[in-house]
Simulated assay, not measured.
Amino acid sequence: MAPVNVATSAGQYPIHIEPGRLQRIAQSVPGNATRLVIISNPVVDGLYGAVLRQALAPLGKPVMTIIVPDGESFKSLDTLNTIYDRMLAEKLDRRAVILALGGGVIGDMAGFAAATYMRGIRYMQIPTTLLAQVDSSVGGKTAVNHPLGKNMIGAFYQPVSVDIDIDVLRTLPAREVSAGLAEVIKYGLILDAAFFEWCERNVAQLVALDADALAYAIGRCCELKAQVVSEDEKETGLRAILNLGHTFGHAIEAGLGFGTWLHGEAVACGLVQAAVLSGKVLDLPAEDIERVRQLVRAIGCPDVAPDLGQDSWLDLMQGDKKTEGGEIRYVLLPGIGQAVVQAAPLDKVQETLEETVGNVTIERESARARETIASGG
C-alpha cells in the first residue's frame, strides 16, 4: 500500500506498511547518517537483528547494537542510562540515527533516548508488535515509566520514518496479538463506527493473523492516528481521545505492577470500563456497551478488571496525565465512533468500578494462547 504520511510541526514523515519491509529498510535511512544504532531486546534481536543488520550492510555505515532487557518493568530511567552510557562511550555524534527495533517499550525508550541525547538526534521506528504498529510507533510520544505513574517522564519527538513489516507478526505470542487488537478496536470506537463494525465482522481473521485483514486494519489505524496527530501533535485537545480506556488501563498496570498484564490487555479491559461509565454519564446504549464487551472477549482480552481496592483505583487514576486541577478527565463515548474528554461524577465512577471489578487471575493467559499450547503450536 502507499505510505501513510504524518504531518507535524517539523515536517512530514512516512509510514511504510508492507510485507518484507525489514529487508528494504535501507530505503528509509537518512543519507547523511554517520552511525546507525539499533536498540532492541534479546528476543526481538534474536529473531530479526541479523536480518536488519544484513539489510543495512549495503549502506556501508558503521552499525552498533544496544540490547536492553525485555518487558514493561524495564522501561525506566535506569535502563535509559545504560543506553546513554553506550552511546557516549562510542562517541556518537549528532548525525547518528537510532533504529528502534521492537515493541512499544523499545520504541518509547529509544525515542526518548533520541529526543534527549545531545538535545536530539534522528530515529526510526521499526515496530515488531501489532500494538506498536497501530499505535505507539506513530505520533512521536516517547517516555519511560516512574514507579508512581506510567509514561510520566517523556517528550513529544517525531521519528524520521515508521517502517512496518507485517511478516514479523507471525512470530508474536498469542497474548501480544490479542493486546494489539485492543488498540485496533479502540480506533473504531473513537473515530470510525464503520471500522468498528468491520472489526466485529472480521475478528476471527484478525485473531488468525490473516494477512489481508491485518494489512487493512493496520493501514486504517495508521490513517486515523495520522489525522489526529496532524491536527493536535502535542495533545492539547483532540489527540487526548486516543487515550480511550487508558485511564483505567494505566491504573491496572500500575496497581498490579508494570508487566503483569500487557499494556493492550489493560487497555482492553479499560475500554469496557470506559463504555460502562459512558452509559452512566452520556447514556451510551446498553447494546453498544455489550458490543464493546463481546469484541474485547472475542480478541482474547480480559473484560473484568482486577480488584485493586476502590481507594487504590481512585488514587491511581488521579495520577493519570489527563488529570487537570485534581479532576480526573475520562475519554467517554456518546456513541460508537464518537469520543469526548470530560470529568465524571465520583458516584458514577464508583458504580462503574463496582460493576466491572471482579476476582480475576493476575497471571492471565488468553484463550488463544491456551489453544496454541494445547495444539503444540
Rank of each mutant, 00 (worst) to 15 (best):
M1P: 07
V4F: 01
V4H: 02
N5G: 11
T8N: 02
S9T: 14
A10H: 10
G11V: 14
I15A: 09
H16Q: 13
G20A: 13
Q23F: 14
I25G: 08
A26V: 09
I39Q: 06
I39K: 03
P42S: 12
D45A: 14
R53N: 15
L59Y: 08
V63E: 05
S73L: 02
L80V: 10
M87F: 14
M87T: 12
E90Q: 11
R94T: 15
A114I: 13
A115V: 12
G120K: 13
I121Y: 07
M124L: 15
M124N: 12
P127R: 07
L130W: 08
L131S: 04
A132V: 02
G139I: 03
T142W: 04
L148C: 10
M152A: 12
Y157H: 08
Y157V: 13
P159A: 13
V162Y: 09
D163L: 08
I166A: 04
T171W: 02
P173Y: 05
S178A: 15
I185H: 01
L189R: 01
L191K: 07
A193M: 02
A194W: 06
R201N: 10
V207C: 07
V207W: 06
D212P: 03
A215H: 09
C222S: 15
L224Q: 01
Q227C: 10
Q227V: 09
V228K: 01
V228P: 00
V229K: 01
E231V: 13
D232L: 07
E235D: 14
I241L: 01
N243D: 07
L244R: 02
E253W: 02
G257L: 03
A274C: 07
V276K: 04
V276D: 05
V281T: 10
L282E: 04
L284H: 07
A286Q: 09
A286K: 07
E287N: 09
L295D: 03
R297I: 14
C301L: 01
L308V: 08
Q310A: 11
D320Q: 00
K321E: 07
T323D: 00
I328G: 05
V331G: 03
I336Y: 00
G337I: 05
Q338N: 11
Q338A: 14
Q338V: 13
P345G: 08
L353D: 10
T356M: 03
G358M: 04
R368S: 14
A369D: 13
E371W: 11
E371T: 12
